Simulated assay, not measured.
Amino acid sequence: MYADYLAAHPEVVPTPASEVAVECFGDSPELADELVEFIVGGTKRATASLVAGYAADEEPLPKVGAHWVCCDGSGRPRAVLRTWEIRLGPFRSVDERFAWDEGEYDRTLESWLEGHRRAHGREAARLGIEFTEDLEVCFERFSCVWPPELAD
């Protein structure tokens, strides 16, 4: 999918293939399927991940300008995304605009907090740390760039 995007857009400076993440949102195939539908539906243009998760998994933090491939719960590529903003801050620093841009469910700050307390709580447990609202989060905004019918 990423190669198709590059072939159609020779003006794009490609992210090195070794740096193109291919991943699913969420922590289960069912959640990945649910969340990818927000991408293809056009509402989800942001995501938030615990910085401790990147460190534990020995993965670099996302970079502005980098591309990544979003897959559904079965691992099938559904969209190429391009990061345009990164902000690191404590979980508690999320605001209404970010919750809206993340584009899930009713897009309110209240539902974002409820859902992400659960999701980040599961991630913290996986990492063997206690979830608190002081944990550092990578707040990432992105555009959908491929396929053409989904591109922003």
Rank of each mutant, 00 (worst) to 15 (best):
M1L: 13
M1A: 05
Y2V: 07
D4N: 07
D4W: 04
A7F: 12
A8G: 09
A8I: 02
H9F: 07
V12F: 09
V13N: 08
V13Y: 07
T15R: 11
P16H: 09
P16G: 04
A17T: 07
A17R: 13
S18T: 12
S18Q: 07
V20N: 06
V22L: 13
V22F: 02
E23M: 15
F25Y: 04
S28L: 02
S28I: 06
E30K: 15
D33T: 04
E34L: 13
E34C: 08
L35S: 02
L35R: 01
E37C: 14
F38T: 14
I39W: 01
I39P: 05
G41S: 08
G41F: 09
G42V: 06
G42F: 11
G42N: 05
A46Q: 01
T47I: 02
T47Q: 00
T47S: 00
A48M: 04
S49R: 09
L50S: 05
L50F: 09
V51H: 06
A52G: 08
A52M: 14
A52F: 08
G53C: 09
Y54D: 14
A56F: 11
D57H: 11
E59K: 14
P60Y: 09
P62G: 04
V64C: 10
A66Y: 03
W68C: 15
V69P: 03
G73W: 07
G73Y: 02
G75I: 11
R76A: 12
P77G: 02
R78A: 11
A79Q: 05
A79Y: 10
A79C: 06
L81R: 11
L81A: 11
T83S: 09
E85G: 04
I86Q: 15
R87F: 05
L88W: 00
L88A: 10
G89T: 14
P90W: 06
F91S: 12
S93D: 15
D95M: 10
D95L: 03
D95E: 13
E96I: 01
R97P: 01
F98L: 01
A99T: 00
W100E: 15
W100F: 15
D101N: 08
E102R: 00
E102D: 04
E102S: 01
G103C: 11
G103R: 08
E104Y: 02
D106C: 00
T108D: 03
T108S: 12
L109N: 03
E110M: 05
S111V: 07
W112N: 03
L113G: 04
E114N: 10
R117C: 05
R117K: 08
R118Y: 14
E123N: 07
E123M: 14
E123K: 07
A124P: 07
A125N: 11
L127S: 02
E130S: 15
E130V: 15
D134K: 04
D134W: 03
L135T: 12
L135N: 10
V137Q: 02
F139V: 00
E140Y: 04
R141G: 08
F142R: 00
S143A: 15
S143W: 06
C144G: 04
C144E: 04
V145Y: 10
V145S: 01
P147V: 10
A151W: 01
A151V: 13
